[in-house]
Design a protein around this nucleic acid. Structure first.
Lengths: 115, 115
DNA sequence: GAGGTATTCAACCGATCGGTTGAATATATC
DNA sequence: GATATATTCAACCGATCGGTTGAATACCTC
């Protein structure tokens, strides 16, 4: 198994082209051809990028005649924010506790006398 | 230029080993040797992982004799949450607006009669 | 059914990635 | 100075990645 959900989502957004696609899809759904328009690359390459986003659960596809519009599924982003916030808060908590320890030091163990 | 800040941070966290390191570093600083202990890989490989995290700005190093403890710099995580939240909120806003449009539909255009 | 449009599949290619081994560097200890 | 510990550097290797070209599929229109 190469990738759990979190790995796939982070990896999907580790590419500036795919992040740009997500940004544009946040405004409106788009087809592969529409998505491809601003980039200097083939539609096949864009199709691959979309597939990466889809496998990560970040977008879904529907059908409209020949077109297969891409739709942003924003819920998956919560996966990441949850993970990130957990460790950011932990680190901040730890930092806060260090402050407390320093504040509680008795006066005669000043770690560094003023130069 | 291969990578802007955002790309490097996302890429750094797109690896389960590095995410585990971040999780452990959120609890306490650690040396490369300490970090390497639980993994079935050489310390050189771990050293490389640490360098990736450092280049992304996620950790900093200090010196303590031969040891070079790794310290988590949690502020960079805000970069990601800011980016993510921006587009999650945009997508949700768009979804909410769609709901409004449906709610404002006149009664005689019921999209789907009850089965 | 012929032709156009939208999309994907398949094979290929160079670059990067995650790992290895082996040698080098830095610091402390005897 | 010799030895042990902690870390990094350098070269290599197979796998994955981001892109290409070319052919295939699916759907609409005439």
């Amino acid at each position: 198994m190469p990738g759990d959900a979190l790995t796939q989502v982070f990896a999907a957004l580790a590419d500036p082209v795919r992040r740009d696609m997500v940004a544009r899809l946040a405004v409106a759904d788009a087809t592969v051809n529409e998505l491809a328009e601003p980039y200097a690359m083939t539609v096949q390459a864009v199709s691959k990028h979309v597939k990466v986003l889809q496998t990560a659960g970040l977008v879904s596809r529907s059908r409209d005649a020949q077109r297969r519009p891409v739709h942003l599924e924003a819920e998956v982003l919560d996966l990441m924010t949850t993970w990130i916030e957990r460790y950011r808060l932990l680190a901040e908590e730890r930092f806060r506790r260090l402050d407390d320890v320093l504040a509680d030091l008795p006066d005669d163990v000043e770690p560094l006398p003023p130069a």
